[in-house]
Every structure is written in C-alpha cells, then in structure tokens.
C-alpha cells in the first residue's frame, strides 16, 4: 500500500477533496446569501440554496452605485503598484541578508525582525505619514504605510534564498567576474521563481484585502477601494453592536446597507483574486534547476 503509487494518489485526492469541501461550503453560503431576497434573508436566515432568489444586491452595486466600479479601479491600481514596489524592496533586502558571508548579517537580520515585534502604535505612525509625507486622502495612503515592505516577506525570502541557492553557485559566478547585481538578476532570481511568484501572490493578496490603511488615512469616499468600502459597511454594524445605549442610536442605523449588499460586496471583492490565482500557479514549478547552473 505504502509503495503503491496509485493508492497514494487516490488517498491524496480524497483528503484534498474533503478539505476543499470544508473550504468551499461557507463560501457557497456566502454567495447564496448574496442572491437571496433581503427580507427572506432576515426572516429565514442563510441557506445553501436560496429560497427566494433576487439579484437586487448586485443590481444595486453595479447599476445604482458608482462606488464599486471606482473601488475596483483603485484596488487594482493600488495592488499592482504596491506589489511591484514591495517585491523590489523585499528582494533587494532579502538577497544580501541571505548571504552568509555578509558582514554584520545577523545585526541587519535582527534590525529587520525587530520591526515585527515592536511598534510605537497607530498615533506615531499616523503622525509620521500625515505630517511629514502628507499622504492623507491620497492614493499613496493605500500603498505606502505598513505594506510597502514587511519583515515577514523579507525573512521568508531570505530563508528561501539561503536554503535553495548553494553558496558554491554564487561563489562560482563571482569568480567568473559577475557583480552582485548581475548575480542577483541572472542567477538568484531565475532560480527563485517559485518563491517570487508565491510572495507576489501573498503581497498582492495583502494589498487587495487591506482596509486598515483606508480606515486610518482615508476619509473621502472617492478614495475607497473595494475592501475599504466593504469594511466601512461592516464596521458600521459592528459599531452598533458594541455601543448599545449610546445617545441618538435610534436613527443611527439609517445608512446601514442591507445584509445582502454586504455579502455581495464580499463576493465581488474576493472573486477577482481567485481568477488571477491560476496565473501564478504556473510559476510554482522549479525555475532553472541547480543542476543546470552547476553544469
């Protein structure tokens, strides 16, 4: 059984299919609730197969509201620019740190890692970015703070570089007279396509799903990305739930969008990510093999 390839394959498929059901079921619930008639949703609760189908939520999003189309444009723009800059910064920092012979390597690693642990809180960062860089209510506010490079990605990439690229390869290239920039661009990067593709994906997801920067730095509707928009809606409900008894609460819920709309935004926000993902998967195979370089 153990050595039987077919048995193994079959078992693996079973496990993966079960996991996929586990993952998909709530998502199906999400989609079906977004196409359920609003009143039915409140009356009957969520169900896998909508009892009364209604596309009102999507109609509202795409016909009567400019916000979604605008939000999409902003999200795509921010994600593309942000991911490119992030990946450039991350790679440029991770490669030297992956070199075991770099003087003061552990100091710099520590310098990077330390930022994962300690932070001065929101107010000082906010002051930094708004008072000195004036990013409030600009597109930069969705790109620059907190996301443009993170210790997590640097460390992931560094670990991957140092465990997958043998020192001998770099040493050999250096002896051949290649400079560090050339080693990075012509040897390290081609050999690291899987991790680059993975991190591009992860950083891209991070940008796509980010709403915290929007919460802090955006107060104008016209700069709302999809996720900022969605989270503003959700937060309003959370606020109402947490502030029972606050003054004037009676009329406060007038602007709360219907549940179906929230669900529809959640779907609309997540689908494009799933559509792009397969594109990255083709890089999830070994780039140039080490053997080839050695040869």
């Amino acid at each position: 059984m153990v050595s039987n390839g077919k048995g193994f394959q079959r078992a693996a498929h079973v496990v993966m299919i079960l996991l996929c059901v586990f993952c998909l079921f709530p998502f199906v619930l999400l989609i079906s609730s977004s196409i359920t008639d609003e009143m039915t949703l409140i009356r009957e609760g969520y169900s896998v197969i909508p009892k009364v189908v209604s596309f009102d939520a999507y109609k509202y999003l795409f016909v009567s509201s400019k916000a979604i189309a605008r939000g999409y444009k902003i999200t795509v723009f921010v994600t593309v620019i942000g991911t490119l800059v992030n990946l450039t910064f991350t790679t440029l920092l991770a490669y030297p740190l992956s070199r075991k012979d770099l003087p003061h390597r552990s100091f710099f690693s520590f310098f990077v890692f330390f930022t994962m642990l300690f932070n001065g809180g929101v107010v000082p960062s906010y002051m930094m970015w708004t008072q000195f860089f004036h990013i409030k209510n600009t597109y930069a506010a969705l790109i620059v703070p907190n996301l443009m490079m993170g210790a997590f990605y640097v460390i992931m990439m560094r670990t991957n570089f140092s465990s997958n690229i043998p020192d001998a390869v770099i040493e050999a290239a250096r002896i051949d007279g290649a400079g560090e920039w050339r080693i990075l661009s012509q040897i390290v990067l081609p050999m690291s396509l899987p991790i680059i593709a993975t991190l591009t994906l992860l950083v891209g997801l991070h940008y796509w799903n980010d709403w915290v920067n929007g919460l802090y730095y955006i107060s104008k509707y016209k700069y709302y990305s999809i996720q900022v928009l969605l989270n503003r809606m959700l937060q309003d409900v959370q606020y109402l739930m947490s502030s029972s008894g606050a003054a004037g609460m009676d009329s406060m819920d007038s602007a709360i969008p219907a549940t179906g709309i929230k669900m529809a935004v959640a779907v609309v926000g997540a689908l494009p990510e799933l559509a792009v993902y397969p594109f990255f998967q083709k890089y999830f195979v070994k780039g140039i093999t080490i053997g080839a370089v050695k040869g």
Binding site: M16, K262, G269, A270, P278
Partner: peptide
Amino acid sequence: KVYQTVILVPYLISIVVVSYL
C-alpha cells in the same frame, strides 16, 4: 491547480463576514 485555488478561498473572506457565516 483546482485544490490550490480552493483552499485559498477562506483566506480571502473578511473575518467579520466569517463571523456572519
């Protein structure tokens, strides 16, 4: 490819929406 895509789905759903689900 299919498995890889599907297992990423939950990560894409905002935690507040998860709480509704």
